[in-house]
């Protein structure tokens, strides 16, 4: 499902959780929503899922406002960290609720996923561990088969084997039943390869919307004598810099062309790659300091 967000604002008291956010997604892909804690990820997802009404601005899901729109919300599933299920009931009741309320619910698939994550239908939700609760959220999210499925930091407390099981199931089910996924996270390294595109937000604003794979190799570190580095990066987008004695390392955003690479080598500068997580840290910090907009 396509998602269009225009100048979206969401205020809580005197805090702008979303501050004029705009972007548009074509749909049918797995999107990563990245941002630091408190950057507005959950607020954005809540508005997209019609859990909340925005203060101002517009959200269009397949061209229609989702809030109180039965045709749209029945096609959306947002799984939050807190898990919107009956805590006092057994896992079986959670599945029953999915069957009764979700338009595209697949009971057989839900059973299969429960087995994969080793969850018993007889257990009470409140007796589950943090990781098991997260796994239950993943079961509900995947078995909903909603055309727009969103997971908000849904892997919390899950151990590595369960997280990998999640990634594998996500990819397998996405391949078998193509639909739109939005997955929010602040742990990038592990999940970045799952995403086709990423959206980075910070302080309720868009920092970047880019093909995930293109983001790799998008950052370059330039290391060398301080004055030479300064001259070289003068016309480039510098995300951050560090100095050690007379040596300086600058992180720049964007790919260098052949001429620039040659010029750097001639000037005795060392060029190096930037890891995705570092690039993310630099980008969100740069956003806060107003270097990139």
């Amino acid at each position: 499902m396509s998602i269009e967000v225009r100048d979206l604002r969401l205020r809580f008291g005197d805090v702008d959780a979303l501050d004029g956010l705009s972007f548009s997604l074509a749909g049918g892909k797995i999107y990563g929503l990245l941002g630091r804690n408190g950057s507005g990820k959950t607020s954005l997802l809540s508005v997209l899922a019609a859990f909340r009404r925005p203060t101002s601005g517009e959200v269009l899901i397949n061209g229609a406002e989702p809030f109180e729109n039965a045709g749209v919300v029945s096609q959306i599933c947002l799984i939050r960290e807190s898990g919107d299920v009956y805590d006092n009931e057994r896992v079986a009741s959670v599945l029953r609720a999915g069957r009764q309320l979700r338009r595209d619910w697949d009971s057989d698939y839900a059973e299969k996923l429960l087995e994969r994550f080793q969850l018993s239908t007889k257990k009470r939700v409140q007796s589950l561990s943090r990781g098991q609760k997260s796994a239950l959220g993943i079961v509900v999210g995947l078995a909903s088969r909603a055309p727009l499925t969103m997971f908000d930091e849904s892997y919390l407390g899950m151990d590595a084997p369960s997280r990998y099981a999640f990634y594998e199931e996500l990819l397998a089910d996405y391949t078998a039943h193509p639909r739109t996924f939005v997955i929010s996270t602040h742990l990038i390294e592990e999940v970045a390869s799952l995403f086709e595109e990423v959206i980075i937000i910070d302080r309720g604003r868009l920092v970047l919307h880019e093909e995930s794979d293109a983001l790799r190799g998008r950052g370059v570190t330039v290391t060398g004598p301080a004055d030479v580095v300064d001259t070289f990066v003068a016309s480039l987008t510098v995300l951050g810099q560090q100095t050690l004695g007379r040596t300086k390392a600058a992180t720049i955003y964007g790919e260098l062309n052949d001429t620039q690479v040659r010029a750097a080598k001639l000037a005795g500068l060392e060029l190096g790659p930037v890891a995705l997580q570092d690039l993310f840290v630099h980008l969100t910090r740069a956003e806060a300091e107003g270097i990139v907009r």
């Binding site: 899922a49 859990f51 109180e68 729109n69 039965a70 919300v73 029945s74 096609q75 959306i76 599933c77 947002l78 939050r80 919107d84 299920v85 009956y86 006092n88 609720a97 999915g98 309320l101 979700r102 338009r103 909903s144 909603a146």
Partner: peptide, 16 residues
């Protein structure tokens, strides 16, 4: 207090 959130979070409108 119990059903409202679960029902709406399951893709049901407030009206319904």
């Amino acid at each position: 207090t119990v059903n409202l959130t679960v029902v709406i979070a399951s893709g049901i409108t407030r009206r319904a």
